[in-house]
């Protein structure tokens, strides 16, 4: 594993004001993300793991603290800068896929490819996720697992430095979930992407290079996994 720090979070906090209640979703959290690693963030609902992921992915701004991405501070980045950051550096995979229903599988991937200067070819990426033959199908014609694979292809085609996955197996059955994790692992290995998976499923922690456990808006522990388990060998 490469030890270059890709992103550095320093005492990052996030508070939301919801009506008259202030919710501290993230409390002075510091974390280094290494280039090329597979990081799993584990935690129960409300532990702040999605907030952490959103801040890493430039979808949300911290209330305080610093974020350095490759020597560049994102702490005070404008909306426009964050959009460009997401466009060029980040790939997102969601629990509910969020594909564009009016675009075919192939077109969903091409839509993302069109955003960056040197994308991978859509056909190659679709072949990698094993759906080259479903290129002309609409999301409504695909199973959940297939939709999630298209969603991964859509994230991968931009050749992002960071692939962020929010509960990527949350809506899928066990077998399909495993397939998705295998795909992510493969992407890490073949493309050298840095992958962060947020999940409440503790079993998934076993495939990580590092495991971050979160509780009540803070990092409870960071475990370096010396011997990550291949996805096909985990169970839940």
């Amino acid at each position: 594993m490469d030890t270059e720090v890709l992103m550095k979070l320093n005492k990052v906090s996030k508070t939301y004001i919801m009506g008259e209640v202030t919710v501290e979703a993230l409390k002075e959290t510091s974390l280094d993300i290494y280039s090329g690693e597979l990081l799993v963030i584990l935690g129960p609902s409300g532990s702040g793991k999605s907030t952490l992921l959103n801040i890493i992915g430039g979808m949300d701004k911290p209330s305080s603290g610093d974020i350095i991405y490759r020597d560049r501070s994102l702490t005070k980045a404008s909306d426009r800068d964050l959009t460009l950051f997401r466009r060029n550096e980040i790939g997102f995979v969601f629990q509910f896929y969020n594909l564009i229903s009016d675009l075919t599988a192939g077109e969903n991937v091409e839509l993302a490819a069109g955003l960056v200067e040197n994308p991978l070819t859509s056909q190659d990426v679709l072949a990698q996720v094993g759906l080259a033959d479903r290129v002309d199908h609409f999301p409504s014609q695909l199973s959940g697992g297939e939709q999630q694979r298209i969603s991964i292809a859509r994230a991968m085609v931009k050749n992002p430095t960071l692939l962020l996955c929010d509960e990527p197996t949350g809506a899928l059955d066990y077998q399909t979930g495993i397939t998705i994790l295998e795909l992510l692992k493969k992407a890490q290995q073949s493309m050298g992407s840095t992958i962060i998976i947020v999940t409440h499923n503790t079993a998934i922690g076993a495939i990580a290079d590092r495991l971050v456990r979160m509780r009540s808006g803070s990092i409870a522990e960071v475990i370096v996994n010396e011997a990550p388990v291949p996805p096909e060998r985990i169970e839940w």
């Binding site: 992915g57 979808m59 909306d79 426009r80 959009t83 460009l84 997401r86 466009r87 060029n88 980040i90 790939g91 997102f92 969601f94 969020n98 594909l99 564009i100 229903s101 839509l111 993302a112 955003l115 960056v116 859509r154 994230a155 931009k158």
Partner: peptide
């Protein structure tokens, strides 16, 4: 869908 476009890097 439109929000998901924002996440993949579309500007508003």
């Amino acid at each position: 869908e439109l929000a998901s476009l924002l996440t993949i890097g579309f500007t508003r």
